[in-house]
């Protein structure tokens, strides 16, 4: 039942946003053509497209993010039942975090965290 309200909120928020776009489409002028058809590059003629390959550094950070986000996903349920699992749970989680921190230190030493 509670989730139905969330769903109602999604619907209303989406329709408000869509409403804004539709109203703007109806009242705003529309004059295509001219220099508007060129990507903005401070007055220079753009060379080539912007859809190109980009720095591999971003992928490495993406991978790191994946590792730590999955870790966080495991920690959420642990935090909720924290009081009932007690000391054993804390020690297990500490070992788990330690393994991940070793991974972070490895990436750090390898220079992945340096931005070039």
């Amino acid at each position: 039942m509670e989730y139905l309200f969330v769903l109602a909120m999604v619907g209303l928020a989406a329709s408000m946003v869509a409403g804004g776009l539709i109203v703007a489409r109806l009242v705003a002028p529309h004059k295509p053509g001219g220099l508007k058809d060129i990507p903005y590059e401070c007055g220079e003629q753009p060379i080539g497209q912007a859809w190109i390959q980009f720095n591999v550094g971003y992928y490495l950070f993406g991978l790191l993010f994946l590792v730590f986000d999955v870790e966080a996903a495991l920690m959420y349920p642990w935090a909720v039942v924290f009081r009932s699992v007690g000391l054993a749970g804390l020690i297990e989680m500490a070992i788990f975090v330690l393994v991940l921190i070793i991974g972070l230190v490895y990436a750090w030493r390898k220079g992945v965290l340096e931005w070039v």
Binding site: Y40, A50, N55
Partner: peptide, 23 residues
């Protein structure tokens, strides 16, 4: 989607930054 070099650079920066700080 903008197909603009400034926009692409901004988007790449934004995603790397938001991923890092989201963790």
């Amino acid at each position: 989607a903008s197909n603009n070099k400034y926009a692409l650079l901004g988007a790449l920066r934004a995603s790397a930054q938001m991923l890092a700080y989201e963790v």
